[in-house]
């Protein structure tokens, strides 16, 4: 048996123009949200799924959570088919989505976890202890018997995290789990996720907070327009971000020779040059290149008679890599007449 979530050529198409209800059949026009995605999310590791808005991350997660059926392709969880063995798959997975309530407002934290524990067939003998353990884990012991409708947003999200762990899932799907959480709570959640992975849980994480992904993920898939565009460790992906070493220089006053010299440097090195002014109307030059051109730029400016008041070097980040990869990806296609 393979201990992993695996997808093979997974596709999901959404109808753009439906047929009239009296003419059943395929939609007249359909757009792929996920297009031939093959992923592997092993147990005992946090795997990242990154992409810009509309890249297909949420659709992928919802298919893996058995909430949506793939249009084509297949996916397995520990060799169990996601569609044919959906009920057994549901016992092994859980999902936490940031920004969605997912718990009952009129019940207390304890009642919510009891209810979900029943739905997951958690043995009665274990349920009470597990509820106490999870409430302690997310720091809600003090509000155990308080109704959720009186909780703050952060407390609700923490309860939602406890709900996602009630069945001791072998795989946890995290869709923006720290969305709207305060920094200390988000940090605690990251610690919990890292510990779960160490305990053997396979985690799939999507997040717009890329520092979070860099910190947690051993392996990252980058998707754009529903297609896989890159895969690697955070360092490997960051290295893909060409022209992303950014050097920004501000001068005390405009000097004609500096304009010419910096332009020549950019042409010679193939760097991307942007010129402008800062809030105090002082000239500003920004160079983007795969190499760090800070020293060369400073020398060029000083030689040309310019006086530098500020110089800032920004190394490439994972965010730069994701944006660059998404920019390079082809536009999604719409199928149909």
């Amino acid at each position: 048996m393979t201990s992993a979530i695996a997808t093979y050529d997974l596709c999901k198409t959404y109808p753009v123009v439906e047929r009239p209800w009296w003419k059943p059949g395929k939609p007249l026009r359909a757009a792929p949200a996920v297009d031939g995605l093959s992923l592997r999310i092993p147990a005992g590791q946090v795997t990242g799924l990154l992409g810009l808005n509309g890249a297909g991350k949420t659709t992928t997660i919802r298919m893996l959570a058995t909430l949506l059926r793939p249009t084509s392709g297949r996916a397995t969880v520990d060799d169990l088919d996601l569609v044919k063995d959906a009920r057994e798959v549901r016992r092994r997975i859980n999902m936490i989505a940031g920004g969605e309530r997912m718990v009952y407002a009129r019940l207390t934290a304890r009642e919510n976890l009891w209810y979900f524990g029943q739905l997951y067939d958690v043995p009665k003998a274990q349920l009470k202890a597990r509820i106490a353990e999870l409430l302690a884990l997310v720091g809600l012991e003090h509000a155990t018997d308080q109704r959720v409708e009186r909780y703050s947003k952060g407390m609700r999200q923490r309860l939602s995290i406890a709900r996602g762990l009630i069945n001791r899932p072998a795989y946890l799907l995290l869709d923006e789990p720290t969305l709207g959480l305060d920094a200390p709570i988000a940090r605690d959640l990251r610690a919990v996720v890292a510990e779960l992975a160490r305990d053997g849980v396979g985690v799939l994480l999507t997040s717009h907070y890329l520092a979070e992904v860099e910190q947690l993920c051993a392996d990252i898939f980058v998707i754009a327009a529903g297609r896989l565009v890159a895969r690697g460790t955070p360092a490997e992906l960051t290295a893909l971000a060409e022209r992303r070493h950014t050097v920004e220089v501000t001068l005390a006053a405009p000097v004609d020779d500096v304009d010419h010299a910096v332009g020549t440097l950019a042409m010679r090195t193939g760097a991307q040059l942007t010129t402008g002014v800062d809030d105090e109307l002082r000239p500003r030059y920004t160079l983007r290149h795969s190499a760090d051109l800070a020293g060369e730029l400073a020398t060029t400016i000083v030689t040309a008679g310019g006086a530098i008041t500020r110089l800032e070097v920004t190394p490439p980040t994972l965010e730069d890599a994701v944006i660059a990869l998404a920019d390079a990806a082809p536009e999604p296609s719409v199928v149909g007449s």
Binding site: A65, T66, L67, R87, E88, R90, R91, I93, N94, M95, A97, E100, R101, M102, V103, Y104, A105, F116, L119, Y120, D121, R163, N167
Partner: peptide, 13 residues
């Protein structure tokens, strides 16, 4: 409407 349909459907119930 209350945002709990997804958590319901995630369960094997």
């Amino acid at each position: 409407r209350e945002g709990t349909l997804v958590s319901q459907l995630l369960t094997p119930a």
